[in-house]
Design a protein around this nucleic acid. Sequence first.
DNA 1: ACAAAAGTGTTGTATATACACCCATGA
DNA 2: TCATGGGTGTATATACAACACTTTTGT
Lengths: 223, 223
Amino acid sequence: MRDESTDGAGTVWGVSTDVVIFSVRDEALTVRLVRRPDEPFAGCWALPGGLLGEGEDPDDGATRVLREKTGMEGVYLEQLYTFGRPDRDPRGRVVTVGYFALVPWTEIGGERDEPDGGWHPVDILPGLAFDHAEIVAMARGRLAAKLEYSTIALQLMPERFTLSHLQSVYEIIRGEPLDKRNFRKRVRAMECIEPTEATYRAGSHRPARLYRRKTPGRVEIIK
Amino acid sequence: MRDESTDGAGTVWGVSTDVVIFSVRDEALTVRLVRRPDEPFAGCWALPGGLLGEGEDPDDGATRVLREKTGMEGVYLEQLYTFGRPDRDPRGRVVTVGYFALVPWTEIGGERDEPDGGWHPVDILPGLAFDHAEIVAMARGRLAAKLEYSTIALQLMPERFTLSHLQSVYEIIRGEPLDKRNFRKRVRAMECIEPTEATYRAGSHRPARLYRRKTPGRVEIIK
DNA sequence: ACAAAAGTGTTGTATATACACCCATGA
DNA sequence: TCATGGGTGTATATACAACACTTTTGT
């Protein structure tokens, strides 16, 4: 019978975090990728991530990665799954704690070391280093699932947004259209957003009311 | 900017798994605990777990722990969450991948190194080592949530069971009673169990029909 | 005046809830 | 025959899905 104090001590371990940073841009769900500067997989696209520092909690590591890659703080961040196949990193045993994050498209700003800022539509991803494709796939599944029973989509919205914006975010993630009247009825029933005084003018048509989250950071479970 | 190849290499890491093994016994949801033989927390109750071996996947580690503690194979096992607070283990940096498992009460058998086999009602747990109380709390929450939108409860059932048994498992985990007729209507609609020819006789009353899972290992998401 | 997106209700259908009595058995 | 848990259906309320037209603005 093994115990924490007796076994596995000979192995050199690494623990890292990798973050699937989602945003909706240009009518697509996109993921932030970076090019790896070093071996293994040098030059290959990969999720932003890195080894945990000494004394660094995995949650803090993910927060740090997020700050470094998007310059943002206070965005939605959730632990996803931990991946530890022995052969997942050719350098040795690195277990990675996967996270996913949601950032409003307006607040992306930050660095642009790649022409497109490293944002890739999740449906047309390049080949990824390590098992990162698997991590992205799981994150996408989790996001789609939570869309249906929580208010998580609001974490992708900027401070003020129209109901049409919100509906299009739902449609983009689900991959199918929604009925406008039923959608509006549903979000009204959630009672998690409220109208502002402001409107949004875009083109030669009626302006749209702008809404905001009532409790910006909070993700509620519905029903 | 940190990268997997550059940082954190000075730290001595350990990676362990801890498994919250649930079973329903004596009208209560119970958890399998073990007494720690060694420091830290020697003699204290803790979740079964241990450091990963070299070349061992976390899933395999959890499967091994489960086999060692219950003698069972093929029971339901799901990764729960990874806990990595820097101070969670006084010996140094040990990140633990938490799992939860469901075992039918009939198949517990195995060793009984404690008078009660180490099974503790989840509502009256002793003090636990490390952050194990937190892990149990999260596992309980996850189980309760999944009860409502999946067929996960069947993983707690023996090969053949009555609908009353199944209902009582739901009631025990939810902590409140259910209407018998509505419950039976619901499970019939799920189409995940089927009646057998056999009945179960227990006491001076009408015998109950025994059911079995149609696809024993499978957990379906409802709706 | 026209084009283009914003905004708004009703009706039918399916799903969930509340609720009470007869049945088969062992003692 | 009595006590015990096993087994069944209906009526109502609630939630969800389908569906079309009017409003406001810019050009």
